[in-house]
Design a protein around this nucleic acid. Structure first.
Lengths: 85, 85
DNA sequence: GCTATTTGTTGTAAATTTACAACAGACGGT
DNA sequence: ACCGTCTGTTGTAAATTTACAACAAATAGC
């Protein structure tokens, strides 16, 4: 089906929480190397795994994953502030 | 990884739009039997495919897919109205 | 009734995701 | 310098998703 690459913010979110890949892996129930593969965007998570990550970070899927390259969160925040002023 | 089953509203949304599985399949770029598998929830879509469906229906992933059984849309609507009054 | 379209289902092969093991490099604390 | 933890990477096997072909049943239009 020629899969598109999905971009994600997993490593940023994980580092914000100050946890290691191993800890995150345990929380979401996968091998720690799998977290590595996901952070390096070497392959896409399954929908179920995407939901587990979303549940762990308490953020909707669309905020963590995107079909388009993700800007740094800091920049997104800046744009939001611009819009509301 | 013992995958959880993900529930979805694909068949309702498709029927609301009045299109066939074949038409939907063409729009999202998969085989029409694949749409059948998804509607019967025999397997979960990949994250990319979930995004294509989300883009086609112009709805966020979380409104179409869920880890918990989905109530009819009519009921969801009723709950929303209750909350706001 | 006939025909076309849609849907449900099954089977097999290909592609993708995940687990797991192994190893190397970076980094911090002692 | 040593030790432990974290990270990056590669390889292989297992599980899951997808394509595709085939066929039956249901439905709608003529």
């Amino acid at each position: 089906m020629e899969l598109r690459k999905i971009f994600n913010r997993i490593s940023v979110l994980r580092q914000e929480r100050g946890i290691s890949r191993k800890e995150l892996a345990e929380k979401i129930g996968v091998n720690f190397q799998t977290v590595g593969y996901l952070e390096r965007e070497e392959y896409n998570p399954s929908l179920d795994l995407a939901f587990r990550i979303s549940e762990y970070f308490n953020l909707p899927i669309n905020l963590i994953f995107s079909t388009k390259p993700l800007k740094p969160l800091s920049e997104e925040l800046l744009n939001l502030k611009k819009d509301t002023k």
